[in-house]
Simulated assay, not measured.
Amino acid sequence: MASTTSSDVLPKGGKIFTTFPDVLFLPEFVIGGLVWILVASTHVYLPNPLGWVMFVSVFCFVGTTLWFFIFACGGNQSSFWPSMDVAFHFVSTVFYLSASVILAFVTYTFGQSIGTLFSVEPKVYRLCISAVVMSHVATLLYFIHTIFSAIRWKRS
C-alpha cells in the first residue's frame, strides 16, 4: 500500500514550474513588483494611506521570493509545509485585498481633485490607476493560489 507523503504533494526543484498553483509564483512576483514600483513612483500627499499598500507589496514580494526559493531548493518536504503554503497565500490574499481597496479609494480621491487648487498631476493619476489594476490582479493571483493550495493540502 502506497502512503501519501508530503514529497508527493509539494513539488521541489524544477517541478515548481510545471505544477499549477506553484507556477503562479512568477506572475505573483512580477505583478507584486509592479505594484511596489508604481506606488513608489507616485507622490505622497498627507494624510495618505499608501504606507499600508507599500508594506503589503514589499511583504508579499519578499515573502513570495523566499517561498519560491524554499520550494526551488526542496526545503518544503516536511509535513507542515502544505498548511504553511495555504496560510501564507491566504494572508497575502487578505493583505492584497485590503491594499487594493485602499489604493482604489486613494486613486478615486485623486481623480476627484483634478481641476481643483490642490490638483494631482495627470501622470501621477495614471500611475495610481495602473497600480490599482495591478494590485487587483495580484489579489486574484494570490486568491487562486490559495484555493489550489488548499485543495492540495486537503489531498495530503
Results as ranks from 00 to 15, higher is better:
residue 58 V to A: 15
residue 86 V to Q: 07
residue 51 G to L: 12
residue 38 L to Y: 09
residue 99 A to L: 09
residue 79 S to T: 11
residue 144 I to H: 07
residue 20 F to T: 13
residue 73 C to V: 15
residue 24 L to T: 13
residue 16 I to F: 02
residue 23 V to T: 14
residue 96 Y to C: 11
residue 29 F to C: 07
residue 42 T to R: 03
residue 95 F to P: 03
residue 118 F to R: 13
residue 140 L to D: 02
residue 80 F to P: 02
residue 148 F to R: 13
residue 96 Y to V: 09
residue 42 T to Y: 00
residue 117 L to V: 13
residue 111 G to I: 03
residue 140 L to V: 11
residue 137 V to H: 00
residue 153 W to C: 15
residue 123 K to R: 10
residue 129 I to M: 10
residue 140 L to A: 10
residue 29 F to I: 02
residue 141 L to S: 09
residue 100 S to G: 14
residue 21 P to H: 13
residue 116 T to C: 06
residue 145 H to G: 11
residue 135 S to C: 12
residue 36 W to S: 04
residue 128 C to E: 03
residue 26 L to T: 10
residue 139 T to I: 01
residue 135 S to I: 10
residue 59 F to A: 13
residue 46 L to T: 15
residue 110 F to N: 06
residue 32 G to F: 01
residue 77 Q to C: 04
residue 117 L to M: 07
residue 66 L to V: 15
residue 13 G to S: 13
residue 47 P to C: 13
residue 133 V to D: 00
residue 70 I to L: 14
residue 146 T to D: 00
residue 135 S to L: 02
residue 123 K to H: 11
residue 144 I to E: 10
residue 133 V to S: 04
residue 122 P to K: 08
residue 59 F to K: 06
residue 78 S to Y: 03
residue 136 H to N: 10
residue 26 L to Q: 03
residue 81 W to D: 01
residue 15 K to G: 03
residue 131 A to G: 11
residue 96 Y to D: 07
residue 64 T to S: 03
residue 100 S to K: 04
residue 113 S to G: 02
residue 121 E to A: 14
residue 18 T to R: 14
residue 123 K to D: 00
residue 38 L to V: 05
residue 123 K to Y: 08
residue 1 M to A: 12
residue 104 A to M: 03
residue 98 S to T: 12
residue 72 A to S: 12
residue 55 F to D: 09
residue 106 V to R: 07
residue 40 A to I: 02
residue 32 G to C: 06
residue 37 I to Y: 10
residue 156 S to C: 15
residue 104 A to S: 04
residue 87 A to Q: 11
residue 127 L to P: 00
residue 136 H to E: 09
residue 22 D to V: 11
residue 33 G to Q: 08
residue 107 T to L: 01
residue 142 Y to Q: 09
residue 25 F to G: 00
residue 117 L to D: 10
residue 149 S to L: 05
residue 83 S to H: 07
